[in-house]
């Protein structure tokens, strides 16, 4: 009966899990290419994408459980996925504050506050329980605690999203080279895409909306990948390809002299 929709849902969740883990791994591997100043931000991003992966890994299992009508496992996996999900804003806040302020201590403290938010959310979630419904498209859980939902909206999502928008604005208002602008804004847009649609995914009561939110999380992950590793065709289209030229080592003076000489000769023949 409930076949196609849930299968699509499983596939999307699995794709998000794979791509975010792969992206985190690739980012971590690119560590030697980064300067000392950008390393803390890089590791925050790696942790962020790993947490996204760890949120969608149990979610994939949860959807499979719903598909096979194993509701006990479904609920267990929901509770498991809530843990990485509650702390996904911690590395994100660390990343943004570090990039703007440049102080590891300050960003550490601020992200600690978000850790408390996350723990508070989990406490309220676990103590008040959830109601589940399985439909043709998705397995939905509604959170019974209003406080949990408020913490979650205000603390875990609105503030970090506002921070991302602020950082985006700072970068967009400056005149920076096109290639740099692409490299700095696209990851931010991708992160906010993933982040906000994860919220929609977790909070929605409509099954189709859950599938669409997950589809957009997947799109966001791909976008982030393109931001760091743009394919050549895209680079050419946007005019952001890196220069492949080597430095010209010959003495410029002599070249000018030769050109001048040729020019002079040309003039002479005209006269």
């Amino acid at each position: 009966m409930m076949v196609s929709g849930l299968l699509l849902n499983i596939t999307i969740c699995f794709a998000i899990t794979l791509s975010s883990f792969a992206f985190a791994w690739v980012l971590a591997r690119s560590e030697p290419e980064h300067g000392d100043k950008s390393k803390p931000a890089l590791w925050a991003l790696v942790i962020f994408w790993t947490l996204v992966g760890f949120t969608y890994l149990p979610t994939t299992i949860r959807m499979i459980a719903a598909y096979t009508q194993n509701y006990g496992l479904d609920q267990m996996m929901y509770n498991l996925a809530a843990i990485p999900f509650a702390f996904v804003s911690v590395p994100l806040v660390y990343f943004i504050i570090y990039v703007i302020v440049g102080n590891k201590k300050v960003s550490g403290y601020v992200s600690f506050v978000f850790m408390i938010f996350g723990s508070a959310y989990l406490t309220f979630l676990y103590s008040n329980g959830v109601n589940s419904t399985v439909t043709e498209w998705a397995s939905l859980f509604s959170v019974n605690s209003d406080i949990a939902i408020s913490i979650y909206l205000m603390g875990l999502f609105v503030v970090p999203t506002a921070m991302i928008l602020g950082l985006l604005l700072i970068i967009l208002l400056q005149r920076v080279p096109k290639r740099l602008r692409y490299r700095t804004t696209l990851p931010l847009v991708a992160i906010s895409f993933v982040f906000d649609f994860m919220l929609t995914d977790m909070i929605t009561n409509i099954d189709i909306m859950q599938v669409f939110a997950r589809l957009f999380v997947l799109i966001g992950t791909v976008q982030a990948f393109l931001a760091y590793f743009p394919p050549l065709t895209l680079q050419e289209k946007l005019g952001i390809q890196e220069y492949q030229f080597d430095f010209y080592e010959e003495d410029d003076e002599t070249e000018h002299d030769i050109e001048d000489d040729i020019g002079d000769e040309g003039d002479d023949t005209n006269v």
Binding site: L27, H34, G35, K37, S38, K39, P40, A41, L42, L45, Y98, V99, I100, G102, I170, I171, Q174, V176, L180, R183, T184, P187
Partner: peptide
């Protein structure tokens, strides 16, 4: 000052 701040932000972006 503006340019320096911007350069530092971009430098910290991985």
């Amino acid at each position: 000052k503006k340019t320096k701040r911007m350069c530092e932000i971009i430098e910290r972006m991985p």
